[in-house]
């Protein structure tokens, strides 16, 4: 009776193990997530990566040794018929000292690169390119003080050059994270924090607010777009241009009318209206079309998505401070026509 049940249990275990390994085989084919933190694309992230892996392998070795010893002792010392009572060993001081000192030595060897990593990575370099990051529920605002440029969600930066992000928050805590470029740093209301960012090569790197910040925390996304020196310079000069006047009688002109009536309490389009920077405000829309995403990164830009967003923002982003304005389909269409002129 008992042995057969044991066998059944054993068979069950083998089957489960098989199922798990089959599952993991199919999982190997899964692509990395865009927020993968193990794929550094800049010097700071790479430095962290170089710190993580050795520690990971040390931990793995310790893991294998400890769990291995556990499994071995289960096999060697499990009670079987005829096994004698064990000798009553109360301890061994040499062993105690050994297993105090060896971990201490291992930890000390981890501590040295850790300390150097902290000191090297926290303070911005002297000639870093300065950018301000301001957190809002639920989008990131970027200001380029030297160039007087303001944008949101997508942090455009020169590649191959250190960017020093000086960060704060307008409301609650946020946490700015571009895994490919560096670790996280909080955005604290009333205080300033700094984060070093640098990309080796031009490219787009996905980011996310990592600190729980309310209803649409999970949709508060960010991107870093690294451009070559030249591309960056031309991006800056295009951002400094005001928007063009839409042609008289065009759909865009009707859209501007809707914009001026419904959107200007929170949004700016230079030169049509200007909301003071530090008033509560939504993103600056002067160069709306220069960005790939809308709604604080919650949606990729497309006409359908923009329609969905304008029709009912809280449906896209729960709790969104942009309310459902009750726009008609006609108003939405003309607004989109206007927004699409904002290169």
């Amino acid at each position: 009776m008992l042995p057969t049940r044991r066998k059944k249990l054993g068979r069950l275990l083998v089957l489960t193990a098989l199922a798990i390994s089959l599952a993991s085989c199919s999982i190997i084919g899964i692509p990395d997530s865009p927020l993968n933190s193990l794929d550094p694309q800049g010097p700071f992230a790479e430095r962290i990566d170089n710190l993580f892996w050795p520690v990971f392998w040390v931990a793995t070795v310790v893991f294998v040794l400890v769990e291995g010893a556990m499994v071995v002792s289960l096999f060697l010392f499990r009670d079987r018929p005829g096994r004698k009572e064990p000798r009553q060993i109360h301890g061994n001081n040499k062993l105690e000292i050994m297993w105090t000192i060896i971990p201490a030595v291992i930890l000390a060897s981890i501590a040295i690169p850790t300390v150097r990593g902290i000191t090297d990575l926290t303070e911005c370099g002297a000639d870093a390119y300065p950018i301000q990051v301001i957190g809002h529920q639920w989008w990131f605002e970027y200001r380029y003080p030297q160039e007087e440029v303001v944008t949101g969600t997508e942090l455009v930066m020169p590649a191959g050059r250190e960017v020093c992000a000086t960060m704060t928050s307008e409301d609650v805590l946020h946490n700015f994270w571009i895994p490919a470029l560096n670790g996280k740093r909080y955005l604290v209301p009333g205080q300033e924090t700094q984060l070093r960012l640098e990309a080796f090569e031009p490219g787009t790197f996905i980011g996310q607010c990592a600190e729980f910040c309310g209803l649409s925390h999970s949709l508060m996304r960010a991107r870093a777009v690294a451009l070559t020196e030249d591309e960056f310079a031309s991006w800056v000069s295009s951002q400094q241009e005001p928007a063009a006047q839409p042609a008289e009688g065009s759909e865009a002109a009707a859209g501007l009318e809707v914009f001026l009536n419904r959107c200007t309490q929170c949004h700016t389009v230079d030169p049509f209206n200007v909301v003071a920077l530090d008033e509560f405000s939504g993103p600056d829309l002067t160069h709306f079309m220069s960005r790939d995403t809308i709604a604080g990164g919650a949606l990729e830009y497309s006409r359908e998505n923009l329609t969905r967003w304008l029709a009912n923002p809280p449906e896209v982003k729960p709790g969104s401070y942009m309310p459902d304005l009750g726009l008609t389909q006609e108003e939405i269409d003309s607004l989109i026509a206007f927004l699409e002129t904002l290169e």
Partner: peptide, 15 residues
């Protein structure tokens, strides 16, 4: 222990 390695915690914290 991997969290005690502070820079690697910057990547892992809040995940």
């Amino acid at each position: 222990v991997t969290h005690a390695v502070v820079p690697s915690d910057w990547q892992q914290t809040d995940t």
